[in-house]
Design a protein around this nucleic acid. Structure first.
Ligand code: FES
Ligand code: FES
Lengths: 140, 140
DNA sequence: AAAAACTTGACTATTTTAGTCGGGTATATA
DNA sequence: TATATACCCGACTAAAATAGTCAAGTTTTT
């Protein structure tokens, strides 16, 4: 039950932006240096954040990325969604007629996993990027 | 953010036992047939359930496994623990002095992931095996 | 022009996962 | 006591996912 590093770094990088954006674009190079994340990897991550309209880019010198929404409005669930990090704790598709064991009826545990997904998703839905910045004693 | 099949099958198999145990031991063969889980795989899973005192075994003909606790008392978190399925959504160790990025201070997102772990764990802590059996329209 | 910084797809090494295999041991029953 | 059933256990492996790199751009500011 782990979260992948792409999602983790994405949240980390966006939190960094929220702290350091002083109206100008924040370059990936800066985020990379401050947070110790590979620049190459960040590029890959921000590509998807951009495609999903979490950030917008400014090209050229002094370019970088800008948050589309304010940290107060940006839900963590939006970030994870952008990285395909769906919270589907098991493989059984809700809509599909097929159950996890290949039978036509739902298995004995199906509803339980559904509840779990809902439980986790509600956490991400209710957290905003700005929530991460509160009470941080040790920033960076 | 997926749960591995070992944990999933473990919960499934134990739920099956809770339904079909009529005081006698339940054989893995029966569980395998009812739930469509590989017998070989089940053996591996039950080995760990036994080591962690979730089930006890009865050898020989008419043997099988028996739940140590009643379904009402068996927490899902106990089952996951038996399979090393710790809910550590990210790799950063709580106790270790080292942060996720190799620096000595905790990163900006650390507390957030801690909260997430607590949120998920509380779900598993509060659910008992018997909870899975309620309201099941489609059993098996 | 030149440098900073974003753009994009492809590629790869490593790790994890899911599941199998082989060769046991214990015990109830015929 | 033979035998079938069912637990016991470590080692093994194929396939998938992950984490990250590389190469070769394009755009914009100074
Ligand atoms: S049928 Fe959906 S989890 Fe088993
Ligand atoms: S320091 Fe613990 S998650 Fe980054």
């Amino acid at each position: 039950m782990k979260l992948n590093t792409k999602s983790r770094y994405a949240v980390m990088a966006l939190a960094d932006m929220a702290v350091f954006s002083s109206n100008n674009a924040v370059s990936l190079r800066d985020i990379s240096l401050r947070q110790g994340i590979s620049l190459l990897y960040l590029e890959q991550i921000f590509l998807r954040l951009k495609k999903n309209n979490i950030v917008k880019s400014v090209r050229g010198i002094n370019g970088g990325y800008i948050l589309v929404k304010s940290p107060k409005e940006l839900k963590i669930s939006d970030i994870l969604l952008a990285l395909d990090q769906k919270v589907k704790t098991i493989g059984c598709k809700k809509d599909s007629k097929k159950s996890c064991n290949g039978k036509s009826t739902k298995c004995i545990t199906h509803n339980f996993w559904d509840e779990l997904d809902i439980h986790i998703n509600s956490f991400f839905e209710n957290k905003k990027l700005s929530d991460l910045l509160k009470n941080r004693e040790a920033r960076i």
